[in-house]
Amino acid sequence: MKSNFLKLVLPAFAILLAVGLAFATEESNLPYVGYIATQSGYAEIQTDCPNLSGGYCYDGLNQVFNDSGLTDPKRTWD
């Protein structure tokens, strides 16, 4: 009885676990268009915000902004 139960439940559990983990992806790692300040104004960049220092997104030493006016900083929790 015990071995029949395990033969039925163990594969079912493995399938449920695989399906559940298939949806456990991070949407925040998708690249997006951001803006950084340069000497001549702003530059448009593609980033996925790899640097998580202080809750704000940085590309190298440059802070990334959501708008070309450089007034809305990109936060890591956006």
Rank of each mutant, 00 (worst) to 15 (best):
D48M: 07
N66G: 02
T38P: 04
A43R: 15
A37F: 03
L10E: 05
D72Q: 12
E44V: 07
D48P: 04
K74C: 06
S40I: 08
Q46E: 13
Q46W: 10
F5P: 03
G54Y: 05
S3E: 10
P31W: 11
D78I: 02
I15T: 13
A12K: 03
T38K: 12
T38R: 12
F13Q: 09
P73H: 09
L52I: 01
G54M: 01
G34W: 00
N62V: 09
K2I: 05
T47I: 01
M1E: 11
I15P: 05
T25M: 04
G20H: 04
F13N: 05
D48V: 02
D59K: 11
R75P: 00
L21A: 05
D72I: 12
P11W: 02
Q46C: 01
D72R: 03
N51Q: 14
T71E: 08
S28I: 06
S53K: 10
T71P: 01
G54S: 10
L6S: 08
G41T: 09
N62I: 00
E27A: 13
E26R: 15
A37N: 14
G34N: 02
A12D: 00
S53E: 13
K74W: 12
V19I: 15
L16D: 06
K2A: 04
Q39N: 11
F5S: 09
D59M: 11
E44L: 05
L61I: 13
I45V: 14
A43T: 12
A14G: 02
Y42C: 09
N66S: 06
S3I: 12
G69N: 14
K2F: 05
L61N: 11
D67F: 03
Y35K: 03
L52T: 11
Y58N: 07
S40N: 12
Q63N: 02
D48N: 15
L17Q: 04
D67W: 00
D59R: 08
S3F: 05
L30D: 12
M1Q: 07
V19N: 05
A24D: 11
N29W: 09
L70R: 01
S53M: 07
S3Y: 13
F13D: 02
K2S: 06
N62G: 06
C57Y: 06
G20E: 04
L8T: 12
C49N: 01
D48S: 14
Y56T: 08
G60C: 10
N4S: 10
I36D: 02
L61V: 10
G60T: 04
T76R: 03
A14K: 06
I15Y: 10
E26C: 10
V19M: 09
C57L: 06
V33S: 05
L8E: 04
V9E: 07
P11E: 07
Q63A: 06
L16E: 03
L52Q: 13
D59V: 02
Y32I: 14
A14H: 00
G20R: 04
Y35V: 12
V64Q: 03
L21M: 09
A18L: 15
T25E: 10
V33T: 14
L10C: 14
